[in-house]
Design a protein around this nucleic acid. Structure first.
Lengths: 191, 191
DNA sequence: TAATTCCTTGAACGATGGTTCAACAAGATC
DNA sequence: GATCTTGTTGAACCATCGTTCAAGGAATTA
């Protein structure tokens, strides 16, 4: 009853505060493991090792592997939304959108993108995760919608954005942001 | 040295013939397992159980799980190419292409599509599988190329086709083939 | 028929992983 | 300080899995 109202800077339980921090660290570690070894590599022990904590601690916060994956997917979607929003809030230029989606081909972005894809595919098999996974597409649809009123164009742009990511992953070469831009522009009839 | 030339109906070793049949049955079973439980569900034992044979027999034909997944991916790509070629060889209508890609939303097609996606994503982490995985995209690019000369339009259509599949998987509802057709037509400027 | 090759199969070994549990430390509340 | 809550941790249990292996059966060849 002490932490009732909105201000989170209430006098809080220090134990819980540290717990929340550790929880977040575990999720981060889990995302790193997904990037490195894929969803299949996410085990309590592997994530705990990545986070530098004992395995039983990872179990304490995420009783099942599923819980951990759900948390990781949610965090990944959050990060993605943050990134794209930041890149498109002021000027909704197509270049920045393309770069935010494809990620410029840097290795770290590539790892992120792969992780996002794996988690999305995971969501296909778990109805409870679908809503989280859809946030990617919905966000791209929203941004695309600023450039056109044609719903088919928007659908095309969204689908193309997803497909471009997959191509970028499958090709080893760095995908030029210019190519992504050209495809998005084509889908949106901006060329 | 007996089975040297092209005619496969040479007097062949009956043991090997049955072996080849069993090998094919194992690959089929592996694909069914991928559809049902995902790539993560592919184990020697699970595939063997699906095929109704002892686990050690699956090991005899595919010494490692990787071998099994490679074979499954190759077979899935073969089947996909066969399907799309069959649907587009005579009249290369966009409707048939759209249906071949999206698959009319039938549950079995959905399972196939999901399996193809999972195997494709697997290929991202194994360079030796990339070539097989690319066959999907290359085929769609070829078919799309029959409708336009604009390379950007082709790239957009290919990317959109991949993205549409993912959307269809993520949405539970059956995706209307008409929607897929509209998106492809938009990408190819045929509307 | 004997030797050879190919396939079949059950059992087992070692490793990994999900999960449980009990003991314990540390902060919060009385 | 006593008590309660929260977090921490190492050990262990049990299941699953990849892989090995040896014994054998069946088709083929000599």
């Amino acid at each position: 009853m002490t932490a009732q109202h909105g201000t989170p800077e209430e006098k809080e339980d220090g134990r819980r505060a540290r717990g929340e921090r550790r929880r977040a660290a575990i999720i981060d570690a889990a995302l790193r493991v997904v990037e490195r070894d894929g969803v299949a590599g996410v085990t309590h022990r592997a994530v705990a090792a990545e986070a530098g904590i004992p395995a039983s601690s990872a179990v304490y916060y995420f009783a099942t592997i599923d819980d951990l994956l759900v948390a990781a997917l949610t965090e990944a979607a959050d990060a993605y939304v943050r990134r794209v929003r930041e890149a498109t809030e002021d000027g909704a230029s197509l270049d920045t959108l393309a770069e935010a989606i494809i990620g410029g081909g840097s290795p770290e972005q590539r790892g992120r993108c792969l992780a996002e894809y794996e988690l999305t595919l995971l969501a296909v098999r778990r109805p409870s995760l679908r809503a989280q996974a859809r946030r990617w597409m919905d966000l791209v649809a929203e941004v695309a919608g600023r450039h056109t009123d044609d719903p088919v164009a928007v659908r095309t742009a969204v689908a193309a954005a997803d497909g471009l990511c997959l191509e970028a992953l499958l090709d080893d070469r760095d995908v030029e942001p210019g190519e992504a831009r050209a495809v998005l522009a084509h889908a949106l009839r901006l060329d």
